[in-house]
Write a protein that binds this DNA or RNA. Sequence first.
DNA 1: AAGACGAAAGTGGTTGA
DNA 2: TCAACAACTTTCGTCTT
Length: 310
Amino acid sequence: MSRTGFIKKCPECGGINLVHHKDTGEIICKDCGFVLEDKMVDFSQEWREFDSDSSEKRRRTGAPTTYTQYDQGLGTEVGQKADLYKLSGKDRNKFFRLRKWQYRISTAIERNLKLALAELKRVSSYLKLPNSVEEEAARIYTLAVQRGLVRGRSMESVVAGSLYAACRRHEVPRTLDELSEASGIEKKEIGRTYRFVTRELGINILPSNPADYIARFASSLKLSAETQSKAVEILEHAQRVELTSGRGPTGIAAAALYVAALIFGEKRTQREVADVAGVTEVTIRNRYKELLERLDLEKDIKKIKKKKKL
DNA sequence: AAGACGAAAGTGGTTGA
DNA sequence: TCAACAACTTTCGTCTT
């Protein structure tokens, strides 16, 4: 049993949905994204060879690489000054040319990355996303730049798209609306670049699970833990009868939450639920209707109504 | 008066010829 | 490339609490 088992509540928002992320050792609050702990030692070693220089052969590891810095924490430059004196005129010219080229290429990409990663940091801290997600997004963005996918698109929209993708891969999904609000990019645009980038890079493609949204929606509606787990239960039931495929995950999550709140007498209006979930009342109504039809939830609701009368 | 409900028309994206 | 299509939205009128 790890000591993390004793942590019950998020000190930031009081949420109870703490998730231990195995890859990074972070403990993340699913409600607000607060990172409780990220002190795990990085056990993975960076083994590297510097084959040209025998005196350096014993060197094993350097600083951990990170994608949130524009050059991944490493820097390479062609031709330190001291080396140049060892060369004759012809080779020296070659070196100057190479250095010039490298300078041009790297400044173009790196300048872009520098700006982009600053923007990425800004947006992700606005959304209170955990470090692991930020790293992932930075990785995706870096790949995108290297493949020239940013051409013809604004840097900001690609940043937003990368973040959106990273969130989904880490199962802490944010809605397009939230990304849109944080980044100032239109929803459509983010969706477009998200799809484009993920397709081009061949990543992701898992539809997001409605249950991942429940915790966050429930906490911003101030619903009890009971209601919340009921909603998840309803959701699982709904998935078993194939009510969920093809539908927008946020709509389903919202409807499940709405019903659950009804059952436990913590009624919220359709409007309220719709707002936090970023869908309309109509969608909630449709999902809600389907839930009542296919799942036998009527009796639960009738019970509540009777209780109220008595 | 506010919330819930449902019909109708519109939007943006996917799919299949 | 285009048309059909499903999911979702917007808008609006009506019913219920």
